[in-house]
Design a protein around this nucleic acid. Structure first.
Length: 273
DNA sequence: CGGTGGACCTGCTGGC
DNA sequence: TGCCAGCAGGTCCACC
């Protein structure tokens, strides 16, 4: 579900509401996420004050005042919402973090592909989840030279290279497909075959499209909601993703869907070479 | 080593 | 109406 723009939107929504709040209790209702939520999870958070909210790739990082960090990943179907404590709990609410002031954070995830753990700021960079990540696409480090280097010698399809978190951190299937549409490159093209000019377009459009999606608070199909449980709006701006057999908004051709690996890729057969 | 395919889960949709 | 196959925004691991 959530890719970089959705995770960024959630972080922004949480930041203004939870920084400075003290955690007064934690209920782990279902510890069986992608990895088990340990017995120590609740005690590691309880009594601490939230110092900062940030993001690395698709991971949400909530810093506490003692140097520990609550790290969470939403998988495919996760939500992290800020609600009034009196609100009715729902099926698949797995973790409840109670804050002073009468609100709660609720981690909700029907498919349980998500992750939640506590580490420390000092240890964070050496966690396997974090240390293998490529550059952030909104930082200057991700540029045409970098991406050109990554495509040379790669026999993979460009869509697969872009959603590999070690190449660039934060892209998933929606935004990889959208970026490739705008760049005029088919998702099935082999990375090493791309011309320099094509790679430059992909590198330049990546931050542009992600920023645009953040501006619209992300893309909602079924599951994704922001920290206030509200829909994103970027789905109205999608050009190819989930638009099989619909007309290309640029040329009118019928959008194609093909299976690439285990997942779908979408493209316009006329606009994308 | 790089790359692929399946596994992990629940829920929804569409075809019969 | 009901059943079943297929599919879903992500990651990880076994295997070639």
């Amino acid at each position: 579900m959530p890719e970089l723009p959705e995770v960024e939107t959630i972080c922004r929504g949480l930041r203004s509401r939870i920084v400075g709040r003290r955690i007064v209790g934690v209920d782990v209702l279902e510890p069986r996420l992608r990895t088990r939520v340990g017995e120590d999870f609740a005690s590691a958070l309880t009594g601490k004050t939230i110092a900062a909210v940030s993001r690395r790739a698709k991971y949400i990082l909530i810093d506490l005042d003692d140097g520990s960090v609550w790290m969470t990943h939403l998988g495919m179907s996760g939500k992290l919402i800020w609600v009034n404590a009196g609100r009715r709990r729902e099926k698949h609410d797995h973790i409840i973090v109670k804050l002073d002031g009468g609100n709660e954070l609720r981690y909700h995830d029907p498919r349980r592909f998500g992750l939640s753990l506590v580490t420390t700021r000092a240890e964070l960079g050496s966690l396997p989840h974090i240390k293998t990540l490529g550059p952030e696409p909104l930082d200057g480090e991700f540029n045409a030279d970098y991406l050109y280097g990554a495509t040379r010698g790669s026999r993979r399809k460009i869509r697969d290279l872009l959603i590999d978190q070690t190449t660039v951190a934060g892209l998933g299937n929606i935004y990889a497909n959208e970026i490739l549409f705008h760049a005029g490159v088919r998702p099935t093209a082999r990375a090493w075959k791309l011309r320099r000019s094509e790679v430059e377009r992909v590198a330049k459009l990546t931050p542009k499209i992600l920023r645009e999606a953040i501006r619209w608070c992300g893309t909602s199909f079924s599951d994704y909601r922001d920290a206030d449980n509200q829909y994103g709006n970027f789905q109205k701006h999608l050009r190819v993703y989930d638009r099989e057999r619909e007309k290309c908004r640029a040329c009118g051709a019928s959008i194609k869907r093909v299976a690439v690996g285990n997942r779908s890729a979408f493209y316009c057969p006329r606009c994308q070479k």
